[in-house]
Amino acid sequence: MDRATQSEAIREATAAMADRMAAEKSFLTDLDSAIGDADHGANMNRGFQAALERLEDADDDPATLVKTVGVALVSEVGGAAGPLYGGSLMKASGELEDGVTAESSVAFAERYLETVEERGKASVGDKTMVDAITPAVHTYKKAIEVDDHDPLEALGKAVDAAERGVAFTTPIRAKKGRASYLGWRSVGHQDPGATSTLYLLEELFAVAEEHLDGDVEIDAEADVDPEELEEAAADGNGGGGP
């Protein structure tokens, strides 16, 4: 996949994510009102709408586009979620400077996870977005690097893993973020950050699937497929990521 196609896929993925955030706004806010400050849905929706607007004037380069989405989230989402969703995307976008490949998408995903963990000082089991992004990133990396799966398949497995991660947040006690101050009362509630992360990954996968179908039909372009998928994967881990 050439860079123009990669860029187009990133724009499509961002648009799909924005639609999803708009659709899930109330649900995310409900989750957040139970254990946080009841603004996650509205904040994420505002952030992705801003990202869409900013993409209109951005150059068609994968790293630039992903970074633009990150900057928009940082400036519009606010609170701690701005730096977590947007700052991590900004930082990880550096891994896509030479375009989106299977290799660079794994690097992107890992960098994204690393930044979220570092900035949020959170680990798996703290009942945060890290509980969704960690299994997604680990699964994606293993599928690509160990099992030699193609990126779309790897991304599909990553989404499944994130879904299990989200389910895992419900029965555990929060140790980070505002939910942590509820102590044991946080048990039994699904984490809003992990949930929005899963939604973003699902949208990334949906866009990757469309592009893959196209590529699959053009069977000859074997090395094009991975790139597309990666790009989508990379964008998803970053944009939707944690």
Partner: peptide
Amino acid sequence: YEGDVMNFETAIEMAEM
């Protein structure tokens, strides 16, 4: 405060970049 620290850390990276 979590929000202040995270936003400053991100801002510092942005200014450096």
